[in-house]
């Protein structure tokens, strides 16, 4: 193996400006976290709604929610991203289409967030549905029996328990969304993977670059994992063991 190591590379200036490579990576990390968090908000809100709709006693709502899940689950994320970026603007009304293509601020960022949010919402929806269905039917009946309407039964009885049950799989989805945000490089979001490629080409110190970036991903994933574990501890119900019944 013939490789010239240079660990000082991170503090050196980039070829084309007065930033250091470390500056690139830190700004990349910022974009990665921003994309992931913003998309997570969409995924959580929309996924909860869709997952809930899949369990209600109305065929049309169930069909609508199922269609959403199948659509966003069965096309690769990268292909979805390219569709959102290149194809969707063509479908918009003329003025809006022009605005999106020419003037929309942070176009790449917004596109990546919407795409990743919708993609993950389908997966969150499946977890929410599984959580709801793991509860006994009696819980729903008990809610209805004291006079709650169906929405109230979901709000006060079913969803609070369902969400507690699915915190572990939601934790993996949260970590997935951080990892999946790397796909945003394909439309030019300056996130960590984009910066890694750029720094590797610019500095020709590929191994140091990738090691540093891998370490950064590791740290973010670890922090996300600890954060979710904290939420899990905080919401734990005393005396309650396991999921079903």
């Amino acid at each position: 193996m013939n490789y010239h190591w240079n660990w000082g590379i991170f503090l050196q200036q980039v070829q084309s400006g007065d930033e250091t490579y470390l500056d690139w990576l830190i700004s990349g990390l910022g974009w990665t976290v921003s994309v992931a968090l913003a998309a997570w908000v969409i995924a959580l809100v929309l996924g909860s709604l869709i997952g809930t709709l899949r369990t209600v006693p109305n065929r049309w709502l169930v069909l609508l929610a199922t269609t959403h899940v199948e659509l966003f689950r069965n096309v690769p994320l990268l292909v979805q991203l390219l569709l959102w970026f290149f194809v969707v603007p063509e479908f918009l009304p003329r003025d809006l289409s022009l605005w999106v293509k020419q003037d929309m601020p942070a176009k790449e960022f917004v596109t990546a967030v919407i795409c990743l949010g919708l993609f993950t919402s389908a997966r969150v929806a499946e977890q929410v549905r599984a959580g709801i269905q793991s509860l006994s039917r009696g819980q729903k009946m008990a809610g209805l029996a004291i006079g709650f309407t169906l929405p109230q039964t979901y709000r006060y009885v079913i969803l609070p328990m369902a969400f507690r049950i699915i915190i572990p799989p939601l934790t993996s989805e949260f970590m997935n969304i951080i990892k999946n945000s790397s796909v945003a490089f394909a439309i030019g979001v300056l996130e960590l993977t984009f910066q890694a490629r750029q720094m590797q080409e610019d500095s020709e110190q590929g191994i140091e670059t990738y090691l540093a970036v891998t370490l950064l991903y590791f740290i973010v994933a670890f922090a996300a994992n600890r954060g979710m574990a904290l939420i899990e501890r905080r919401t734990r119900v005393p005396g309650y063991i396991g999921g079903a019944k």
Binding site: S136, G138, Q139, A142, A145
Partner: peptide, 13 residues
């Protein structure tokens, strides 16, 4: 109309 269930169905949370 009050109802009491076989498996209690208290709200665990």
């Amino acid at each position: 109309v009050g109802m009491v269930f076989q498996h209690f169905e208290l709200f665990p949370h």
